[in-house]
């Protein structure tokens, strides 16, 4: 299975461990990822908030480059995925928008492009059986809260491969990897992502609520599929603990890092050293991995 891989800006910087673990896990499941040469930023939230047509035009520029590699595009960043999928949806559903976008992009939109989130590919194309076959080091005793955030499943008509209010694909995969999935109500709550720099106070409150809710429901850690969720929950966790005078100490993993651990990959191969909240204490306590190995 071959995909034109669109990492997006975050996976080349703040979420480099998401990229590392994706590239480590995908080939084990028979997925070949070929990075789209010269891909450009999807524009993220700031661009569509300023000019929707420009946001779709950036998507078309990327689709054109992707087509040189493959018509199936694989994405990991939930925000890039959301932007590219929504652009596809608008281009397919409105000729008026398509005309405007093609004019701004200076490019034709190829109708055959498809955009997939790799979580969807793992869950629905590769399947749980194939994943199970690869599990050599089950995540026994690890209580994981799967956190999907906003952009992975909303709006459903444009992006969803899973239920918009109660998604289960990440739970299914990690359960297959041997983890115990926590039943909690904040799976699709918003962490405030796009306000991270401009209104950090809002993000701290929302992210605090998510961390706290996971903790209350017995989570040892949280699994995410979005670099923005990750940096808000992981990078800002210390300041959140300070602000709310609470001890949370929840390691935040990318779901591919947990898959990789179950497949027997080392912490180094999965970029675990890049996480801010130290995951080793928990992993060693549960006998899942050791920093030394």
């Amino acid at each position: 299975m071959r995909f034109a891989y669109y990492p997006g800006c975050s996976l080349h910087s703040t979420a480099v461990e998401f990229d590392i673990s994706t590239r480590a896990v995908a080939p084990l499941l028979g997925i070949e990822l070929v990075e789209i040469p010269n891909w450009v930023c999807c524009g993220a939230s700031p661009t569509h908030q300023r000019d929707s047509i420009l946001s779709y035009a950036l998507a078309v520029a990327n689709f054109n480059k992707a087509e040189l590699v493959n018509e199936q595009i694989g994405v990991q960043c939930a925000s890039c995925y959301n932007n590219l999928r929504r652009a596809l949806f608008e281009l397919h559903h409105s000729d008026e928008i398509k005309k405007k976008v093609e004019k701004v992009a200076g490019l034709d939109f190829g109708n055959n492009v498809q955009v997939f989130h790799l979580l969807d590919v793992f869950r629905n194309q590769i399947g749980l059986e194939a994943i199970k076959e690869k599990v050599t080091h089950p995540l026994k005793g690890l209580n994981v809260a799967a956190y999907y955030g906003c952009l992975l499943t909303r709006p459903p008509e444009a992006v969803a491969f899973d239920d918009p209010e109660w998604p289960t694909s990440m739970d299914d995969i990690l359960q297959t990897c041997g983890a115990t999935m926590v039943d909690w109500p904040y799976k699709t709550e918003c962490c405030g992502a796009s306000l991270a720099l401009s209104r950090t106070d809002v993000v701290q409150k929302l992210s605090h609520d998510i961390l706290k809710m996971a903790k209350i429901h017995g989570a040892d850690c949280i699994a995410v599929a979005c670099p923005l969720c990750h940096s808000n929950l992981d990078l800002r966790q210390k300041s959140i603990e300070k602000k709310f005078a609470e001890n949370l100490e929840l390691p935040i993993f990318y779901y591919t890092q947990l898959m990789g651990l179950a497949f027997g990959l080392s912490g180094k191969e999965l970029g675990l050293d890049k996480l801010i909240v130290n995951p080793w204490k928990l992993l060693e306590e549960k006998g899942i991995g050791s920093k030394k190995s």
């Binding site: 906003c150 952009l151 909303r154 709006p155 459903p156 918009p164 699709t188 918003c190 405030g192 992502a193």
Partner: peptide, 8 residues
């Protein structure tokens, strides 16, 4: 925050 909950 463009979380799209309202839209959904």
């Amino acid at each position: 925050a463009s979380c799209i909950t309202c839209t959904t």
